[in-house]
Design a protein around this nucleic acid. Structure first.
Lengths: 335, 335
DNA sequence: CCGGTTTACTTAACCGATTAAGTAAATAAA
DNA sequence: TTTATTTACTTAATCGGTTAAGTAAACCGG
C-alpha cells in the first residue's frame, strides 16, 4: 500500500489536485465547505505531502544542517540539545555531520549542502584549520550561523565571552597563590582559541606576572603528542597553576599528575573550560569555566530561523557568558 | 547565480538531458567520448544533482534517520559516532531526532518519517513506554534497526549481553563481600531493562542470596523522585552493594553518599552500566559495565545498510559484549 | 546486398506537489 | 438589463531529474 498522494485525494473528492493543494494551504480561493471536505479526508487517510515534490517546487526542505567537530563531547552534545529543541519547535529537521576536526571533511559536507539540500546551516568549525575557502564559499548562498568556533569571515555567530573567562580563570589561579601559571592552548587558528589565550596573557599582565613562553603549551588533536608535552610540562617546567582551554586536556592533566605523583591542588591547581557534568565528582573536583552550551545551541538556532523567516542576513551577533565554578582543584587549603 | 541543472549541461553540450543523465550514471548506452565530455563539464561547473528531483523520481533520499532518547549521554553520543561513520562511508545523510523519552514525540517523528522522507531508521526506543503502536506501524514500511533499547516487536536489532553483564556485576559485588545488594532499575518496560534485572536476580540466586524486594529500586526519569528513593535506600535499607543500570543513577548515588557521609567503597560498593570516559577519574573511580557504544552504532548502521542494499529484511541480529571494568568503587580494601 | 542487431543517442512521460493563468457561474454595480 | 467583479474552481506549466520507448546510423552475418 503506497503512500497517499494529492491526486488520490482529488480523485476521491472529484476535485482537481490544484484545489486540494490550495485547500490544504487554507487558500482564500477555496470555499469553506470544500476545505472542510479536503481536511477531513486528508486527516482520515493520514495524508502527508511528499517532501521531495514539495522541496522541488518550493526550493525549501524545512531542514537545517549542523556541522560539528565531534559529538562525544559534553559541550557539543548539549549544544545539539538546544538546537534540536528549537528545530522541533519550528518544525524543522536536523541533519548532522561530524567533521572530526578535519577541514577536508568539512569542505566535503559543505559542498554537499550547497547542492540545495538544506535551508540553513549551523556550524562550529573544525580545527586543523588553515584553509577556509570552503567557508567563504557559503557566503550569500546558504544562511549560516557559526557558534562557539567561528572564523574570521563569519557574518552571524553566537560565541562566549572567552577572553573574559580565560582572564577570570587566570586571575583566580593568581589569587589562589599561583605564580607559574601554564596555559594549555588549542584551536590556535580560531577566534575562540585566540581569545582564550589573549585573556590569559592579559590577566598575567594585570597580575604583574612575567610571561614565560614555555608555560604556553600548544596542544593539538594528537593525544600522544599532547601527553608528551604535558609530561614535559609537569616534569620540567613544573607550573603551580594550569588553565586548560578544553576539557580533554584537563582530563589528560589529571592522568599525567596521577602518573607522576603530583597532587592537585597541592602541587598544581587546575581550572579548565569544561561542560563535564561530573566535574564535581572528580578526584579532586574540577574548577571549571562552564559555557551555557544548551543556550548557545538554542540561540544559534533561533538566530538562524530568524534569518530564514525574514529572508535576510540581519541579526545581532550574540555573546553569552560562561561561568567560573570553583571547586577543589583550585582549593588553597587542601581538604 | 542559480544552481547548475542537468538542462544547462545538456544545452551547453548540445545533448539531451536524458543523455547527460545517463552519462553521469555511467550508463553503457552512452559512448565513452560523450561520457568524457559530460563528466568534464559537470566537474568544472561543480554540478550537483538536485536531491529533491532525484528523490521524487527514485523514491530514495540517501538519508537515514536516528531517533534517540537523548544525546547528552555518553552511550548515545558514542553510538552516533559509530552511526555517522558508517553513514558517511556509504554516502548517506543522517537526520537526528531526540525523543527525550517521550513516546508521544517518538510517535510524532515516526509519522513524519513514514511520509517517505528517509530510506531507513535506527532507533533506540523511548522509555515512558506503554504505547508501542507507532512502532508497530513501521513494520514493513520503513527498514528499521533497533539498537540497545529494543521492543518486543522489533525485527532487527543490535543489543548487548545485558543479562550476563548484570549477572557478572552482581556476582562481582558478592565476591567483594556484599550481601545486601541493591539494584537500581530503570527502563522496566523495555527488554534491556528487563534483562538487566533478570541478570541481577539470577546472580542473587546463584550466590545463594535471598531476594529482598526493597533492595530493588524502580527509578524513573524524574530526578527528584529518584533522589528521594535513593535517600530512602541509603538511609533506611542501607545496602552494602549497588548495581546501577544506568550511568546517571550512579552519579546520583555518588551525590547521595556524599550528602549522607556514606563512603564508597567502604560502606557501600557501586558498579554501574556506564560509558563515562572519566569514570576512572571519579572519586572514587567507578567500576563500570561499559558497552561498546561506538561499535553498537556502527553495527546497527551496517545492518541497516545491508537491508537497504538487498532490499529485504534479512539480517542476523547481533549481541555485542559489554565489559566489566573493575575500579575503586568496588575495592575490597580501601586504598 | 539485405534483414537483424547493436550503438548512441532523443523524445516524452513521469515522480507529486505548487501556482500562474484561465473559466464558468454567481453576485454586484451601473 | 447589461456589464463588471467576485467566487470557486480547473487546466496546464513547472520544479529537475530519471527512464521507458522510440529512432537513425553503423555494423554484421549469411
Amino acid at each position: 500500500m503506497g503512500e497517499i498522494t494529492i491526486r488520490q485525494l482529488a480523485e476521491t473528492l472529484k476535485l482537481s489536485t490544484a484545489t486540494v493543494s490550495k485547500a490544504l494551504q487554507n487558500s482564500h480561493e477555496i470555499s469553506e465547505a470544500t476545505k472542510g471536505r479536503v481536511f477531513e479526508l486528508a486527516k482520515s487517510l493520514n495524508y502527508r505531502p511528499n517532501p521531495f515534490a514539495r522541496g522541488l517546487r518550493r526550493h525549501k526542505s524545512n531542514t537545517i544542517a549542523v556541522i560539528l567537530p565531534e559529538i562525544a563531547d559534553n559541550f557539543f552534545a548539549q549544544a545539539i540539545n538546544g538546537i534540536e529543541e528549537m528545530a522541533r519547535q519550528q518544525g524543522y529537521h536536523l541533519i548532522i555531520y561530524l567533521s572530526h576536526d578535519s577541514s577536508e571533511r568539512e569542505a566535503f559536507f559543505i559542498n554537499d549542502l550547497l547542492g540545495r539540500y538544506v535551508d540553513g546551516l549551523l556550524i562550529s568549525v573544525s580545527f586543523d584549520g588553515i584553509d577556509f575557502t570552503h567557508l567563504d564559499e557559503i557566503q550569500g548562498k546558504l544562511p549560516t550561523v557559526f557558534f562557539d568556533r567561528t572564523y574570521s569571515g563569519s557574518l552571524l555567530h553566537v560565541t562566549n565571552n572567552d577572553f573574559e573567562s580565560a582572564y577570570q580563570a587566570t586571575k583566580h589561579l593568581f589569587e589562589c597563590g599561583c605564580r607559574q601559571i601554564s596555559f594549555l592552548s588549542i584551536l590556535q587558528g580560531l577566534e575562540v582559541g585566540n581569545q582564550r589565550l589573549q585573556g590569559y596573557l592579559s590577566a598575567l599582565q594585570d597580575c604583574g606576572l612575567m610571561l614565560n613562553p614555555s608555560l604556553i603549551i600548544n596542544c593539538s588533536n594528537n593525544k600522544d603528542d599532547n601527553q608528551a608535552k604535558l609530561q614535559h610540562l609537569m616534569k620540567v617546567i613544573k607550573p603551580d597553576g594550569i588553565v586548560s582551554s578544553v576539557e580533554k586536556l584537563a582530563k589528560l592533566c589529571y592522568y599525567t599528575c596521577n602518573d607522576l605523583g603530583i597532587t592537585i591542588p597541592g602541587d598544581v591547581k587546575i581550572v579548565s573550560f569544561s561542560n563535564l557534568d561530573s566535574a564535581s565528582l572528580l578526584n579532586p573536583s574540577l574548577t571549571t569555566i562552564t559555557q551555557p552550551a544548551y543556550e548557545i545551541g538554542k540561540q544559534a538556532a533561533t538566530m538562524l530561523f530568524k534569518v530564514l523567516k525574514n529572508n535576510n542576513y540581519e541579526a545581532e551577533n550574540m555573546v553569552l557568558r560562561s561561568e567560573l565554578i570553583k571547586r577543589q582543584s583550585t582549593n588553597v587549603s587542601v581538604v
